[in-house]
Simulated assay, not measured.
Amino acid sequence: MRTKIVAGNWKMNVNEVESTELIQEIKNSIQNLPLENTRVIVAPSFINLASAVKNADNSKIEVAAQNMHEATSGAFTGEVSADMLKSVGIKTIILGHSERRSLFNEDDELLSKKIDTALANDLEVIFCIGEHLEERKTDNYLLEVGSQIKNSLFHLEAKDWKNIILAYEPVWAIGTGETASPEQAQEMHYFIRNAIAKKYNKELAANVSILYGGSVKPSNAEEIFSQADVDGGLIGGASLKANDFTAIIKAI
């Protein structure tokens, strides 16, 4: 059975005090929920990771990082390495988010290197893939997402996939108020799982958790999560409000 996951990407929001308060609110809200086969993850900014790990200790909350440099160390001012993340208790990182791709020019080749570094350091990866509006409108969205998977992930050995979680982000539905319909989400998640099955095998593909990320809210979470190949969500804005995030967790 695939693991269900609700992950909150806090992006460049909340300071340390606010981060501590938000984690505490989420802890209190979910402590009595029956989260069997379900993981709850939050991803604060780098500067708040160490305190977040301590604040989430002995709770149902895991803490992930939003990014990581591909080098192990060196003259890369402002960057953070895998070893640094591990040293403060991080076990999971988000890579390939659409904002990293579009705003910081991270391409498939670079992301492939980051994935290799993460896996070499025994870190789990939530890898984001997704198409822009122009690709969706020209019906090239399956080709685009398929290319992202192939270029960044298909060099991996089958054993590596135990540490890979995928997150499908229709970029046109992030921060726009637009949301892919449950049927559109299912179509893409099925396509992704089928592509993995063709490259590796059906059993491996059946065990990969694929999250949906794109304006998930309490009002639409249950319908989206009900789709056969949707295993949870990578949540943006709604993860910054404990009540909304909890409602989405309950919808899983």
Score class of each variant (00 low, 15 high):
Lys60Gln: 15
Met84Asn: 03
Gly74Phe: 10
Glu62Asn: 12
Asn58Asp: 13
Thr77Met: 02
Lys86Gln: 14
Glu79Cys: 10
Ala75Cys: 10
Ser81Gln: 06
Glu62Phe: 11
Ser73Thr: 08
Asp83Leu: 14
Ser73Tyr: 11
Thr92Trp: 03
Ser81Met: 07
Val88Phe: 04
Glu79Pro: 00
Ser87Val: 03
Leu85Thr: 09
Val80Trp: 11
Thr72Lys: 14
Glu70Thr: 06
Glu62Val: 06
Ile61Leu: 14
Asp83Tyr: 09
Thr92Cys: 11
Val80His: 11
Phe76Gly: 06
Val63Cys: 03
Asn58Val: 00
Gly78Leu: 05
Gly78Cys: 06
Ser59Asn: 10
Thr77Tyr: 07
Thr72Phe: 14
Ala64Gln: 00
Ala71Ile: 02
Lys86Arg: 13
Ala82Met: 02
Lys60His: 14
Asn67Leu: 03
Gly74Trp: 11
Ala56Trp: 02
Thr72Pro: 02
Ala65Thr: 02
Ala56Ser: 14
Ser59Val: 08
Ser59Tyr: 09
Glu70Cys: 12
Glu70Ile: 07
His69Gln: 01
Lys86Thr: 09
Gly89Lys: 05
Met68Glu: 05
Ala71Leu: 03
Ala71Ser: 12
Gly74Pro: 07
Ile61Ser: 08
Gln66Trp: 03
Lys91Ile: 11
Ile93Asn: 08
Asn58Glu: 13
Ile61Gly: 07
Ser81Val: 05
Ala56Pro: 04
Ala82Thr: 00
Val63Thr: 01
Thr92Gln: 12
Ala64Tyr: 00
Val63Gly: 05
Gly89Gln: 04
Gly89Val: 07
His69Phe: 13
Lys91Tyr: 12
Thr92Tyr: 09
Lys91Val: 11
Asp83Ser: 15
Ser87Ile: 03
